[in-house]
Write a protein that binds this DNA or RNA. Structure first.
Lengths: 270, 270
DNA sequence: GGGTATTTGTCCGTATGTATT
DNA sequence: AAATACATACGGACAAATACC
């Protein structure tokens, strides 16, 4: 029994793309032309194109057409910055970004006071509140990631008033907390999952609205030496233009071509 | 301007699910019933259901109906096993799996000789060949991951003949290479990406055939102390039932509930 | 095992809306 | 303003998978 028609058509188009017959950036024939070519209905053509979108091979633009995606060199995000130098990761990142040839940008933070249930990893009481600092981040002008950090509200009452000011902190919040409250970040735990984007994410990353392109969610819980969590940082990245690299043990610097060329941190000066 | 109808319907059903009105495992009304209830066409209902499938909330079973998915406790995969003990990660994993309360299983490896282009990270000549060892891996009987390891063919000619034998190596190939050829693994680099599953993966993981549920691909390149790659291991995991954890610095053992309960390694005795 | 009803999967044709040029 | 192309929505038909008698 053969595959369904829409999958046969998708397969045919996929081969044309991967063989180079349809190079990146080129335009596919319109749905009506494909309809005649394959002797199928327009809906069937659309089902085939949807499959190619899911696989990241093409993108549709209303009023224009369907295009083979330009293979963006993916942003490479390193998750295992060497620590133990007595610094938070925030400052280390700045130099990493400069080392790459891409130019990062970050929006001013949007500050909110929210219930502690937004960041259960902090282990706070149900009635407690947290400060959230939300930022949009770009690389070379491309929407790159959305990041929200949560801090216990009692940090503010203890004297760290700057974290509820909607201005970027050039040295990073982690450094600030150490300076003001002597709260030191000893390590962190990342949880990486993949899920469909929410409405905010589809809008910011300009993803197809039906959730076919998922996002990475990196949930970083950072701890003091005592084991008490000091912050939770949630960062989302569209999965179609990001990859993660992490190393263990002794590894040569340029192990495979292109892997390190665009090395980027997972966190800026949040 | 309101959202499209199919998204409104999806939103309504989503709320019913997340509010508990439609508990996990329960069956949704049939497409024809929903069609009457929302006064929409069957295709529009189907578009709404497709969205819910993409978001991992429901699953359809031909001939039966549409069901709210049972929330599987995700498999947690730790990527940062402490090294420096002079052991490969393979043996360390065995104990980790036993520590968890889930029972792993692995198929006998399928061995193939393939061109070196299958694993460009090994940096071999175009005309060279590699040995691939492919395994299916299960947790509690659930298809969990597909793994293929690539080794330079010249390892066999140098005396490591066991790696082309289609039998599991209880102590791991890495250990074997060290014993026979004194080739020692000094570290590795992981690249984590997300993509649509191929046909083999959709069949093994029983994912929807239109590629709505992506898979994690973890590409591990392991190096000798000299910096020469000794193997490439590619492992894929369905993203709807796996998450990755990695830590840096000092982190308490049980930082957030459930995170470590099912700790699993990314590699078995490949 | 066979037959039938139910339910989802595929495919068609058509009409209208919306974004872009 | 008009033309083009994708997005949404409708309705209908048959196939395939499953469950049940």
């Amino acid at each position: 029994m053969p595959d369904p028609l829409y999958r046969q058509i998708a397969e045919d188009l996929r081969q044309q793309i991967e063989s180079g017959e349809l190079p990146p950036g080129s335009q596919l024939r319109t749905e009506l032309e494909l309809r005649e070519h394959y002797d199928a209905s327009r809906n069937t053509i659309r089902d085939a194109v949807k499959l190619l979108i899911t696989r990241g091979l093409v993108a549709t633009r209303p009023g224009q057409g369907t295009f083979v995606v330009d293979k963006i060199e993916p942003f490479t995000i390193t998750l295992d910055i060497k620590t133990g130098f007595g610094e938070g990761e925030d400052t280390a990142y700045a130099t990493e970004v400069i080392a790459g040839e891409r130019t990062p940008a970050v929006s001013a933070p949007r500050i909110e006071i929210q219930p502690a249930s937004m960041a259960p990893e902090l282990g706070l009481d149900e009635t407690a509140m947290v400060v959230s600092r939300h930022q949009q981040r770009f690389i070379d002008g491309i929407p790159w990631s959305l990041q929200t950090s949560f801090y216990p509200m009692h940090f503010v009452e203890q004297g760290a008033g700057q974290i509820i000011v909607a201005r970027e902190m050039s040295d990073g919040v982690v450094r600030y907390l150490e300076d003001v409250l002597s709260i030191k970040q000893a390590g962190w735990r990342d949880k990486i999952t993949v899920r469909a984007p929410d409405q905010v994410e589809t809008a910011f990353f300009r993803l197809p609205q039906d959730g076919r392109v998922p996002v990475f969610e990196v949930r970083r819980t950072a701890f003091q030496e005592s084991g008490t969590p000091l912050r939770v940082t949630v960062t989302t990245f569209p999965s179609d233009r990001n990859e993660f690299i992490l190393t263990s043990g002794d590894v040569p610097d340029n192990a495979h071509p292109g892997a390190d060329d665009n090395a980027l941190p997972v966190e800026g000066s949040a």
